[in-house]
Design a protein around this nucleic acid. Structure first.
Lengths: 163, 163
DNA sequence: TTATTCGTTCAATCGCAATTGAACGATCCT
DNA sequence: AGGATCGTTCAATTGCGATTGAACGAATAA
């Protein structure tokens, strides 16, 4: 594999890389996905590292991350013991997977944290560590978050289906 | 203003700070919002800096950022020339504002970038810089993104209303 | 067996963005 | 007027996480 990338692919890789960066994800992950998404053929780890001029280590961790999100998948090439990768082209599925594996767990974690905070607040009230007025204020604000979280976790799956 | 924060507030501040960090935003911004969100009284810049043990500079830039997102607002306290801040308690409105001021512009920017990429691709085709097969592949994949972007920008406002 | 060729790991490095803090101009007070 | 108290700015610093690259074990080939 010894190709030079067209301008379109180079720009695309750069764009997806920047997008990831802005989302707080490693740029290399975006670059890898961008490269694979516009790759007619599946690529090996070394292909990826070479085309993007990144280390094999980065390519390895990046591909594993992307695979865990089901954004890319490994494909088996008979007669070659190397791992080959290709992007999951169906972005609709990808989005669904990101929601399920990324957003949903975070929402649930947030919900649990909120419960623990409400418990702490209750504790403090019983100990008299907060005034009744403060307690009422804190309670209402925390409840507001809980309600929003509830609605979000109800609406997101619907929005998902509407896509 | 010389209060000590209750355990509930401290934990909440930490949590929101971490959330922001994970989203690629400055932790201090989350801390400021968390502090204000669970603050019965509005706070001055110095209050914020002191309670969070951050510099006045951070507090200044952080509050301005948050205000630009309409996550917090300045309130005028008669007889005091300092700026006071309080959190916008209505999270539903906050979400709407974030969508309008943050997501929507990014979606639109992405759309424009995609158009420019398609133009580049067309150019390369005419110059024979890409094979017909590659062209077809690139075209289809880029079109897929455009279609998804379209659906997203149509569904998001609906989901917004459903909240 | 030994020699390659894989992918992974992890300590060290690097780069970027958050944070600091001093200097500044503006505004208010006396 | 001068002095005090605001908020902002920006160059310097810091801290964090992405990235590197060498070392490693495993699997294959000779």
């Amino acid at each position: 594999m010894e190709i030079t990338l067209s301008k379109t692919r180079l720009e695309f890789i750069e764009t997806v890389g920047r997008m990831c960066q802005q989302l707080g994800l490693p740029r290399s992950i975006g670059q890898i996905y961008g490269l694979l998404y516009l790759s007619p053929a599946s690529l090996s780890l070394d292909d990826i590292a070479e085309q993007l001029s990144i280390s094999k280590g980065s390519a390895s961790t990046g591909t594993r991350q992307l695979a865990s999100w089901q954004a890319i998948k490994q494909v088996w090439v008979p007669g070659d013991r190397r791992d080959y990768f290709e992007a999951v082209g169906n972005l609709r599925d990808l989005l669904e997977s990101i929601y399920r594996n990324y957003f949903k767990p975070k929402l649930e974690k947030g919900g649990r944290k909120l419960d623990s905070l409400l418990a702490t607040l209750e504790e403090e009230r019983q100990q008299g560590a907060v005034s009744p007025e403060d307690y009422a204020f804190f309670k209402e604000r925390l409840d507001n978050i809980a309600r929003l979280e509830d609605r979000i976790s109800r609406v997101l799956p619907i929005a998902e289906k509407l896509l």
